[in-house]
C-alpha cells in the first residue's frame, strides 16, 4: 500500500452507524411493534421493505445525477460515483424484489403480484445490470464513461412509463391493490431502518467509488512497455 493513499474514516463510520441503527430498528420492528390488523406479523416485512425501496430509488437517482454531471463536466470522479451508485442500486433493487416476492406469497398466494412499484424496480434492476455489463465490455475509459452515462439517462427515463403501463395493465386486470402502507401506530422502526440503510448505502457508494477510481488509476498507469497505448487514449 502506498503511503499517499489516505485511509478516510467517514465511510467506515457510516457503515458502523448503519449496522447499529439497522439492528435496533429491526429489533423494534420485529419484537416491539404491534402486529398489523389485517396483515398480522407478515406486515413486519414492511419495516425493512419500505426503507429498502426508498434507498434503492435514491441510489438510482444519484446514478442519474452522476451521469448528467459526467456528460456536462467530463470529470471522471463523477464516473466513479456513477459506477458505485449503479452497483449499490442493483444490490438494493435485487433485495427489494426478493423482499417483495416474500411479502406477496403469504399475502396474495403468489410470488409476483405485478405491483407497479415492484415491477418498475425489476425493470430498472435489469436495465442497470445491462449497464454494468456494458461497462465490463468497453475497454476505452472515455467511451465506457460516456456510454454508460447515456445508457443511465435512457434507462431512468423509462421509470415513469413502466410505472404507468403496469398500473394500467393492473387496473384492467383488477388485481389487488398495492401493499398497504405501514400502520401509523409505529413509525419509529421504519424511520430508523430508513436512515440505517441510507447510511449503509452512502458508505458503500463512497467505498465503491474509491475502488472505481483506484481501478481507473491502475488502468491508466500500466507497466512502462504499454505507455504508448496510453498516449493514444489521452
Amino acid at each position: 500500500m502506498t503511503p499517499n493513499h489516505r485511509f478516510p474514516r467517514a465511510p467506515y463510520a457510516l457503515l458502523a452507524l448503519g449496522v447499529i441503527l439497522l439492528l435496533l430498528g429491526s429489533y423494534l420492528g420485529l419484537f416491539v411493534a404491534p402486529p398489523e390488523h389485517f396483515m398480522g406479523d407478515v406486515q413486519r416485512i414492511m419495516y425493512v421493505h419500505v426503507p429498502t425501496a426508498w434507498n434503492a430509488l435514491l441510489a438510482m437517482t444519484f446514478a442519474l445525477v452522476c451521469a448528467i454531471a459526467f456528460l456536462f463536466r467530463g470529470d471522471f470522479r463523477w464516473d466513479a460515483r456513477m459506477e458505485a451508485a449503479i452497483e449499490v442500486g442493483v444490490l438494493l433493487a435485487f433485495l427489494l424484489c426478493c423482499q417483495g416476492a416474500i411479502w406477496a406469497k403469504p399475502t396474495w398466494g403468489v410470488w409476483w403480484d405485478w405491483d407497479p412499484r415492484l415491477t418498475t424496480t425489476a425493470v430498472l434492476l435489469f436495465a442497470f445490470i445491462g449497464i454494468l455489463a456494458l461497462r465490463r465490455f468497453v475497454d476505452d475509459p472515455v467511451r465506457r464513461a460516456t456510454w454508460s452515462a447515456v445508457a443511465t439517462i435512457i434507462a431512468y427515463a423509462d421509470v415513469p412509463i413502466v410505472y404507468y403501463s403496469v398500473t394500467w395493465w393492473n387496473s384492467l386486470h383488477q388485481l389487488q391493490s398495492s401493499p398497504a402502507t405501514v400502520s401509523k401506530s409505529f413509525h419509529l422502526p421504519l424511520r430508523m431502518n430508513a436512515f440505517a440503510i441510507l447510511f449503509l448505502m452512502t458508505g458503500f457508494i463512497m467505498l465503491r467509488a474509491r475502488l472505481a477510481s483506484l481501478r481507473l488509476e491502475h488502468e491508466l498507469a500500466p507497466p512502462p512497455h504499454e505507455l504508448d497505448a496510453v498516449g493514444e487514449l489521452a
Partner: peptide
C-alpha cells in the same frame, strides 16, 4: 387477519442481512 407467517418475515430479514 393473516396468522403466522414468521417464516416469511425471517427469510426476508435474513436475506437482506445476508446480501448486505
Amino acid at each position: 387477519t393473516i396468522t403466522g407467517g414468521w417464516g416469511f418475515v425471517w427469510s426476508a430479514y435474513g436475506l437482506t442481512a445476508f446480501f448486505l
